[in-house]
Design a protein around this nucleic acid. Structure first.
Lengths: 195, 195
DNA sequence: AGCTAAAACCTACGGGTATTAGGTTATCTG
DNA sequence: CAGATAACCTAATACCCGTAGGTTTTAGCT
């Protein structure tokens, strides 16, 4: 009886691959065990439970996304940086749908704090807008706009939510133009300071 | 043995309520049957399967959202219409989270075609931007921007994705300003006609 | 080489959900 | 009131998660 040589890392990687195939919400310990030729219960030696497995996939996926985002924005500024960032994110969402979904999974703050990937995504997100010269809190507002728009767009794109015949690529380009314009002309209102 | 008096509609309504409680992805035939004091299998007389039940909830929820959106935009134009639309959507997402999730469920085109709610949501979405005078295909691009942003924002808000201490309401207001500005200054490029 | 302890697996359950098949009973209608 | 229909039921299959406790392999140490 040759052993599969399981380890938490290999299980996580297999789970990430499975997520890309069947969707992050549909990964199953049983399917993983089948893939390894192993009994379901054997996986519990390497992973606490399904939830734990998902978190591990999320952390690993965040690392990969962070790499891509960083590579796509270093040395760029303004619209170039914006487009590089957005396109890298979109590429990731389309080519690794399961891992992308994993990065959006709500996890405990302490997990995020301990996840280098999540930290670097945050950092890169803030940094890539440097060229627009937005002061806080406008910068955070702008980032929330970008995150919302991207996440919503990718979700709609993935679920076939764009029923209209208009070319999705053209819409994407137009949206990036609009976002660049919004960032360029962001109205920094003189509001009270918020905590 | 008094009967529960089940019907497809009552089951759907109960499912919608359950979705608001535990999340649309977590509705379960077993839980519904428990609530009615009935065996699981009994529900299959009124609903084909879980998928069918979800679609029914989606159709019903779309009707409710369509009502709210229409009420929030009739007689308004420009920023007022935009804000009314967006806030009505957000209110719905926050007060009826399960039903809101249901409206985002990917369903077959023929289901959408037969769902008055979905149709009216589309119509209202297009109509509420009339004041901005956008020609096609810019109008469709703009609508895709709005849908993406709203959907992403609500998802992030619901999942606690906004970790930063910045007040979410303030960000929301700033984002609406930015979107209004983007729509007002939308760059209608002279591109080739797309199908 | 031989022993040992940890790591890698297993079987056996208990519990939950989806779905089908085939029956039974209340309720409506002609 | 009889028959049809709608509203139920039990039973069984098939997955899935998770726990408990046991067995085998592997690696390290003497």
């Amino acid at each position: 009886m040759a052993r599969a040589g399981l380890t938490a890392d290999r299980v996580t990687e297999a789970a990430a691959d499975l997520a890309d195939e069947v969707g992050f919400d549909n990964i199953t310990l049983s399917a993983l065990a089948r893939g390894f030729g192993v009994a379901d219960a054997s996986l519990y030696s390497h992973v606490r439970n399904v939830r734990d497995l998902r978190v591990r996939v999320a952390v690993r996926a965040a690392r990969e996304l962070a790499d891509r985002l960083a590579a796509a924005t270093t040395g760029r500024a303004g619209k170039e940086s914006l487009a590089g960032f957005a396109n890298a994110w979109r590429d990731f969402a389309k080519s690794r749908p399961g891992r992308y979904q994993a990065t959006q999974m709500p996890v405990e703050p302490d997990v995020i704090a301990g996840s280098g990937g999540h930290q670097r995504i945050m950092a890169t997100t803030y940094a890539h807008l440097n060229g627009y010269g937005l002061p806080e809190p406008a910068l955070t507002d702008a980032i929330r706009l970008l995150r919302s728009t991207y996440q919503g767009f990718f979700a709609l794109e993935a679920s076939g939510g764009f029923g209209h015949p208009r070319d999705v690529e053209a819409s994407w380009a137009a949206i990036l133009d609009a976002l660049d314009s919004a960032l360029t002309h962001w109205r920094v209102s003189a509001e009270r300071k918020e905590p």
